[in-house]
């Protein structure tokens, strides 16, 4: 039972991060390799707001999340907008460069110290006992719930929302979408904002659960295989991919060798690339578009 809970928590972490990769890729065909850094930045925002709004902890979390939404939009407006129409590789490398910039800036501002935002906000982390004597911490449970809410929200938004429909249209055919009067830049900026927002949400919840330092970037990178295994342009795929990767990882830790935990996601990824490069739910034509 505990095994299932462990898998579920890890899957939720990967899924919540992976949906950021998917959102941007689906809309603009750009792979955002700065996602891990943006996620970490969101968590550090919480450190900043936690000291500024020590009176009302909930406000601090909400403002930090909203700030990351704005940061994502701004990243598009001031940086990535200039890369539209350039080679895809150039755009991807721009995100790599952005990631390096953020890493440097984060250490400059917050130093390499370990932070504990939960203690700063004065919250506890009670443990919930589930049937079957499995246990889960409050924030891990919140993380699973956040993942469910975010994915549910995104499905509804993309299906029925006016802007969601525009995002899908822009992803399918930017030229046609623009001709129908859709403001592509606004759509892309929204995608970046949402992606950073969900990433930051994951970052904030992980930081609340177990603390924060600059190694969080690596977690963002580990979620990347999940997005790819599921198919880079499919949200449902990201969810399933996260579950597969998490199950493989937790299973290996439990039954084989904990040392392999870091390599397993990439082994699954290689296997997937050999068998079905476009991922479980990905669109096949993507391969030729790049």
């Amino acid at each position: 039972m505990q095994l299932a809970v462990n898998i579920l928590v890890l899957a939720a972490i990967y899924a919540l991060i992976a949906c950021g990769y998917v959102l941007i890729y689906r809309v603009s065909r750009v792979l955002n390799l700065a996602h891990g850094e943006l996620m970490m930045l969101g968590a550090y925002m919480l450190v900043a707001t936690a000291s500024a709004f020590s009176m009302s902890p909930v406000m601090a979390v909400v403002i930090a999340a909203l700030m990351s939404l704005a940061v994502g939009g701004m990243v598009y407006l001031f940086l990535m907008r200039r890369m539209t129409g350039e080679m895809v590789l150039a755009a991807v490398l721009t995100t790599v460069a952005l990631g390096i910039l953020i890493r440097g800036a984060v250490i400059l501002i917050w130093s390499a110290q370990q932070y504990h935002p939960r203690a700063m906000l004065g919250w506890g982390n009670p443990v919930i006992t589930l049937p079957g004597d499995a246990r889960i911490s409050l924030y891990a449970a919140l993380l699973i719930m956040a993942t469910v809410v975010v994915y549910g929200g995104l499905f509804l938004f993309l299906r029925f929302g006016r802007w969601g429909m525009r995002m899908r249209a822009a992803g399918q055919d930017p030229l046609l979408a623009a001709q129908r009067g859709i403001n592509l830049h606004a759509v892309f900026a929204l995608a970046w904002g949402l992606s950073t927002f969900t990433g930051a949400l994951a970052g904030i919840l992980i930081a609340l659960d177990s603390g924060l330092d600059s190694t969080m970037v690596m977690i963002g990178l580990k979620a990347f295989p999940a997005a790819l295994v599921g198919g880079l342009d499919s949200l449902a795929g990201a969810l399933l991919g996260a579950l597969i990767i998490a199950a493989a990882e937790v299973g290996v830790i439990r039954f084989i060798d904990p040392l392999l935990a870091d390599v397993v996601p990439f082994i699954v990824l290689i296997a997937m690339l050999v068998i079905r490069p476009w991922g479980l739910f990905g669109t096949r034509e993507e391969l030729d578009r790049v």
Partner: peptide, 10 residues
């Protein structure tokens, strides 16, 4: 454990 693990529970 690997250098950064997202979740140490496993």
């Amino acid at each position: 454990t690997p250098p950064p693990a997202p979740d140490y529970s496993p």
